[in-house]
Design a binder for these strands. Structure first.
Length: 770
DNA sequence: TGGGGCCGGGG
DNA sequence: GTGTACGGCCCCA
């Protein structure tokens, strides 16, 4: 019997002696990979039916005991209610057969957990999480490690020494998207702690693939990181390896990558991390590019950026620069992973999903897995997705802003309003009822009640997340800021917060296993009640309400009255509100969710306005930002208009680079699903005709050219535009003027004022002096 | 001229 | 493939 401290990297299901067995991939403190098998755990399904049927099914399974199937009547819970169900265990394939036979022979039978992969069920029932340390006890039997015991070591705050390898791929074609059937790999750049290696095409690309496979195998990384690996790199390399007949044996034991769930590629024995998944799930990243991620993480930018659309041209005319760019990408992907690993591993450890799989899952499934983990602990059967929604429901309350410029404004907001309400009122799929009973708190206005006699699953989970977060935050203080343990604990507490905040949205998600329309609706209803009653109290105290959105109120900062309001909220509502920030100057437009302010620490906040949006060109956005700054810092009208005039003049003279004029919009569905034509769609269709694959989620950058007719006929991809064709008037009258008017109107400068200034400039004498 | 389609950001 | 509320553009009838 051996006992070791091991870090849980990943798990696979493998055949061992003709049986499907869970194999744990563990890493010891020296970074050595150890496989440990758990043959004691077999796959299972639950069957629910009336007791007579269950008995018959029980007998049916008993007949197949020789095939390794067993059946037992067990006690479980179903959304809070006690139940007796039949647990059938056995090899996955035999289970599938049995399920089919039962389905064919019995009616009114419900199966549970037949829709969850064995490896995931294993993690749930064993209550173990990847990316965590365990004390593992095992025996060695004929060279195979057999698991005996596995105990979490929750105090560990370091990772084992992991070998990380990043990869960037260069391919190109003269006719759009490169095709692995015919277009060779032009270059591959690998980056590790030991430096980089760049393979560049000479005669054919067989050499590149061979070297790539050799080098990956000899370095044998624990983690392979890419940017768009799942969508571009691995599909291309796999296809190309088939064409060249050089298997892409880069797995730990020489397996090839294979596609698993949601377009994710598995590389057995290694974590395949695609940082594109990270940027897609991070809302503070707008454009979802590697350059933006680098900026976000404080990593230096490349000397020169090449759009993928220009790779062919660059390969022909600017090869050295392109190869430099690829090296920058590989290094940046490596560096970015080193900065993000704490967050990725924390997410994995908490949700219980393997690190590469958790990253490729959307927030909804991350939350769902965490809920399932907690549900199993309560003895709950994992329910299935119904997918039947009850339509939409009312959301948060937004108050109309008081237009104009205000001074000394205080923003009061409720601390984690929705999670708090869920806990306070015990709102959960398993507590929602319709009947008014003794143990039910009933809400007449929406016709829904909440059971108070049992603690709901969601409130229990949120409480656990909050408690755990508090623990982690106090432990954090034991370590110096920026140290490895500090970073790990900080990432950990952030993930706990994110999960708590996502619980409400998950509850209202139609595809959630634990979907509760009534629950979600009750949460927003209570939120609206909370904000309205607080508003009434604030007015009663003599505060002026300037604006409010969902969980916040903007009022004039009268310290005593605000304190009185906070006390009232705490005492009467039993909720916690705080002063979120104070603005020296605040500008409200007529529109909700759009304002700008100067905080007491002299920061400019811009909310909702064009400046923070990606579907306006940079030049207009920068103009708006500077105008906001002038307005908030009390600049004179003359000074403000001088600045505006200068910005328009530059456009009128054609002195603005194309890059500043690009408008970015996302393709949000398949091209054939669009009902209406629009500029970014027209450009996407044009690219598709040229041979580019336009996938959902792609960003289209376009500029508007001179001409007549609708904009979509004059929009062109920014890489193909020439400066002399730019429609400068469009940028003056439909970009710069609208965004300027938006922030100048509250101070009495109208859109037509700005238009007169612009056309005055255009026809002024100085234009004709030359 | 107004309504629908569409997009992106706020809380 | 977490929710709803909202503004504002463009297109089209």
């Amino acid at each position: 019997m051996l006992s070791k401290k091991l870090w849980f990297l990943d798990l696979t299901t493998e055949e061992l002696g003709g049986k499907d067995v869970i194999c744990l991939w563990m890493v010891d403190e020296n970074g050595i990979v150890i496989n440990i098998y758990d043959p004691g755990h077999r796959d299972w399904v639950y069957v629910d039916a009336d007791i007579n049927t269950l008995r018959k099914i029980y007998d049916l399974v008993k007949l197949r005991e020789s095939a390794g199937l067993t059946a037992d009547i067990v006690k479980r819970k179903l959304v809070g209610r006690d139940k007796e169900v039949l647990l059938i265990r056995g090899p996955p394939k035999d289970l599938e057969n049995v399920v089919r036979i039962i389905e064919a022979n019995y009616r009114d039978v419900t199966f549970y957990e037949d829709d969850i992969r064995f490896s995931n069920k294993y993690l749930l029932i064993r209550d173990v999480s990847p990316s965590s340390w365990y004390k593992v006890t095992y025996d060695v039997e004929s060279n195979i490690n057999i698991l005996r015991d596995i105990q979490l070591l929750s105090e560990e705050v370091e990772y084992p020494p992991l070998k990380i390898l990043s990869i960037d791929l260069v391919t190109a074609s003269p006719i759009g998207e490169a095709d692995p059937e015919s277009d060779p790999i032009l270059a591959v750049t690998l980056y590790t702690a030991n430096g980089y290696k760049q393979y560049v095409l000479r005669n054919d690309d067989k050499e590149i693939l061979k070297s790539l496979v050799n080098d990956v195998q000899s370095y044998s990384p624990h983690v392979i990181v890419s940017f768009e690996g799942n969508s571009i790199v691995w599909p291309y390399l796999l296809e190309r390896s088939k064409v060249l007949n050089i298997p892409l044996k880069i797995g730990y034991r020489g397996d090839e990558p294979h596609q698993s769930l949601y377009g994710h590629f598995s590389i057995p024995g290694r974590l395949n991390i695609d940082l594109k998944d990270y940027v897609n799930n991070n809302p503070s990243l707008q454009r979802k590019t590697l350059e933006e991620l680098a900026y976000f993480l404080g990593i230096s930018q490349p000397g020169r950026v090449f759009d993928r659309l220009l790779y062919y041209d660059a390969w022909k005319n600017n090869r050295d620069e392109l190869l430099k760019y690829s090296l920058w990408r590989a290094k940046t992907i490596y560096d970015a992973f080193m900065l993000l690993k704490e967050e990725i591993f924390s997410l994995s450890a908490i949700t219980g999903m393997p690190a590469d799989y958790v990253l490729s899952s959307s927030a909804g499934f991350q939350v769902e897995n965490y809920i399932m983990k907690n549900a199993v602990k309560r003895g709950e059967l994992i329910i299935k997705v119904k997918g039947k929604g009850k339509g939409t429901y009312l959301g948060g309350l937004v108050l109309p802003p008081k237009v104009g410029i205000h001074r000394n404004v205080c923003v009061i907001d409720f601390k984690s309003m929705y999670p708090t309400l869920i806990m306070k009122y015990n709102i959960s799929p398993d507590t929602i009822v319709y009947e008014k009973k003794d143990d039910v708190k009933y809400f007449e206005e929406i016709g829904v009640g909440v059971k108070q006699s049992i603690k709901g699953l969601f409130p229990e989970i949120i409480k656990r997340l909050v408690d755990e977060r508090n623990k982690v935050r106090s432990k954090m203080k034991e370590f110096p800021e920026g140290s490895a343990p500090y970073r790990i604990l900080d990432a950990h507490q952030r993930v706990l917060k994110i999960l708590a905040n996502a619980m409400y949205g998950y509850m209202g998600w139609i595809n959630a296993r634990y979907y509760s329309w009534e629950g979600a609706q009750l949460v927003t209803y209570l939120g609206r009640e909370t904000i309205s009653s607080s508003k009434r109290k604030a007015e009663e105290l003599g505060l002026h309400i300037l604006y409010g959105d969902t969980d916040s109120l903007f009022v004039n900062y009268d310290k005593e009255k605000v304190e009185a309001l906070l006390t009232w909220i705490s005492k009467e509502l039993g909720l916690e509100a705080k002063i979120d920030k104070i603005y020296k100057v605040l500008l409200f437009t007529e529109a909700k969710k759009r304002y700008a302010g100067l905080t007491i620490d002299d920061k400019i906040d811009v909310v909702g306005l064009e400046y923070v949006r990606r579907d306006w060109c940079n030049y207009a956005k920068e103009t708006q930002y500077n105008l906001i700054k002038l307005v908030l810092t009390g600049a004179s009208k003359d000074k403000i208009l001088d600045y505006f005039r200068e910005r328009v003049r530059k456009l009128d003279r054609g002195e603005v680079p194309i890059d500043e004029l690009v408008i970015w919009e996302q393709i949000t569905k398949r091209l054939d699903e669009y009902k209406a034509m629009s500029p970014h769609l027209a450009v996407a269709e044009e690219l598709a005709l040229k041979g580019w694959k336009i996938k959902k989620g792609m960003f289209i950058g376009y500029v508007i050219l001179k001409g007549s007719g609708p904009l979509y006929k004059r929009a062109i991809h920014y890489t193909m535009a020439k400066k002399e064709d730019i429609d400068w008037d469009y940028y003056i009258y439909r970009q710069v003027i609208p965004v300027s008017a938006r922030v100048l109107e509250p101070m009495g400068i109208s859109k037509s004022d700005l238009e007169s200034i612009a056309s005055g400039l255009h026809f002024s004498m100085d234009r004709f002096l030359f």
